[in-house]
Structure formats: C-alpha cells, structure tokens
Computed example of a mutant assay.
Amino acid sequence: MQWYKYLPKIHAESMVEDGCVKLGILSGYQDVEAHGEAVGDPDENTRTIYSHDEHVKTDPKQLNPLERQFFDFGNAEIENFHFSNNRIEIKNHDDDLLAYCTSRPFNINAMRKMSEENIKAGNDAYDACVEITDHIGFIQALCDFLENEHGIRYKGHGDCFYRERLIHWTQAHNTAAWNIKDKKYSYQKECRIVFTPPSSFSEKSLIVNVPEIKKFCRLYDLSA
C-alpha cells in the first residue's frame, strides 16, 4: 500500500535523500494558532466518554463505572439512595503519543487546501509530496530505529476515523482517541503511525534521520 506525505519541497527532498522525518506529540497539534486550521485540531487525541441512563437507581451498586467517579461514599451506610435520568460526559485526554501522519490516496486538492491553511498560519507551503511505496516496510524500519536509538515504542497504525468524539462508556475500552478526527478533516484521508515515548521525553516533536526508510520513499510527480 502506498502512503503520501505532503511537505515543503526542502523537507521532501531531505526525506528522500537522508531519511529525515519529523514526528509530533499529538497534544501539540491542539495549538491551532501555531499549526493552522488543517494541521491543528483543538480536540486532538481527546474523546468524550458519556453515560445516559433514564432508569431509577436505588442502590449505589447499580451505578456504572462512569457514574461512580462522581460519588465517594467511603464506609458510610447508604439509605434512601435515588439516582435517575442522568447524563454524564467526561472529556478524556488519552496518553500523549508521538505520531507520524500521512495520507492515502494522493489528492492534489487536499494537499492544496492544507497548504493554504499552512500559509495563513505563517508556515511553509506544501509544494511537494513523498510517496511511501511500501507502508509496512516503512513502518518496520521506522519502528526499529526509534526503539533502538530512542527507546520509543510502536503503539499502532491505521486510518483515521472521521466521526464525533462522543463515546459510550461501554465502548471506551476499545475506542482509542489517537485515530478519531472530526468530519471536517475527512478530506485529508489521514493515516497515522503512533508511538509511546519514554517517560523522560518532554519535547513537542522529534526529528530523526532514518537511512533505512529511504528505499521506501520517492518524490511524487505532482504533474501526474
């Protein structure tokens, strides 16, 4: 499978020639002023866990895990407990991960729209694209380098899901925040690789040269 990385030309050439890539901490992209409306996302790596139960509960043992977070009974004996028709929402910030973001398939209109937003934010235009010809080989080479050289461990990869961030508490255990994006970003068709940095990592981004990825990267002909 091919992935595509939209970049300023100078960075695209560096990726192809030197294997240079930049990973970013997901929470850092919440700064829309710095990253622009396309790359920035104020809700990046968050989800809202909710519970909505219209039934009457007369015993604390009937509370679900989300509801229990709002009660601290200690060792008290509870009498005349009544809890009904409640809706609870808790905005959850997932563990901060390092991410490398790409797109598929290539879309010149998406690239131009993202570029325009970059320019509005005072950042460099996307005027080049790197085609990653084998995404699995690329992931493996990048993962090996990051773990061996920086102690950064692979967490997962995949397409982003464009949907609301509201998750029922029964689904919270199998719905990650790192690949959820609002529908307004759907034109980007984003694919991500995410990594767990060591506890000592405190930077917002990491730039590395990974020679092993060069064989999977080539400049994409924008005139094609």
Rank of each mutant, 00 (worst) to 15 (best):
P65L: 08
D59P: 02
P65G: 09
E44T: 11
N45F: 03
H55Y: 09
L66Y: 05
R68T: 11
H55R: 15
V56R: 11
V32I: 09
R68Q: 14
G74D: 11
L23M: 10
I25E: 03
P65I: 09
V21Y: 01
A38F: 01
N45I: 14
G19H: 02
D43N: 14
D43Q: 11
E37H: 06
T48R: 12
Q30S: 10
E54H: 13
N64F: 13
E67N: 02
P42E: 12
D72H: 05
T46N: 10
A38H: 01
V32H: 00
R68C: 07
E54Y: 06
A38L: 02
S51V: 10
H52S: 15
G28W: 02
G74Q: 08
P60L: 15
D53N: 15
I25A: 06
Q30G: 15
T46R: 11
N64D: 13
D72W: 13
T48L: 04
Q30K: 15
T46I: 10
H55K: 07
K57N: 07
T48Q: 11
V21H: 00
D43L: 10
G19F: 03
N64R: 10
D53W: 05
G36I: 01
H35I: 04
F70C: 03
K61Y: 09
Y50F: 13
S51I: 03
S51E: 03
V56N: 09
P60E: 10
E33T: 15
V32Q: 01
E67W: 00
R47G: 06
D72S: 13
S51N: 04
G19R: 00
I49D: 08
F70H: 05
E44G: 10
A38T: 03
V56H: 11
K22C: 12
R68Y: 00
V21I: 09
E54S: 14
R68M: 10
L63D: 03
D59L: 08
Y50G: 08
N45C: 05
Q30M: 14
D53G: 08
G24D: 12
Y50M: 04
V32Y: 01
E67V: 07
Q62P: 00
E54M: 13
L66C: 07
G40H: 06
P60V: 15
E37L: 12
N75H: 02
G36N: 02
Y50V: 11
Y29P: 04
G40T: 14
K57E: 07
R68W: 06
G28P: 03
G24F: 02
R47E: 13
N45P: 06
F71K: 04
P60Q: 10
R68N: 14
G36Q: 01
E33F: 12
C20I: 12
L26K: 02
F73W: 07
I49A: 11
E33R: 11
D41Y: 03
T46H: 01
L26I: 14
E44H: 05
V21N: 01
G24P: 00
S51C: 10
A38V: 00
G36T: 00
L66V: 15
V32P: 00
R47D: 08
K61Q: 12
I25T: 08
Y29K: 12
C20T: 15
E33M: 06
Y50Q: 07
C20E: 15
P65Y: 14
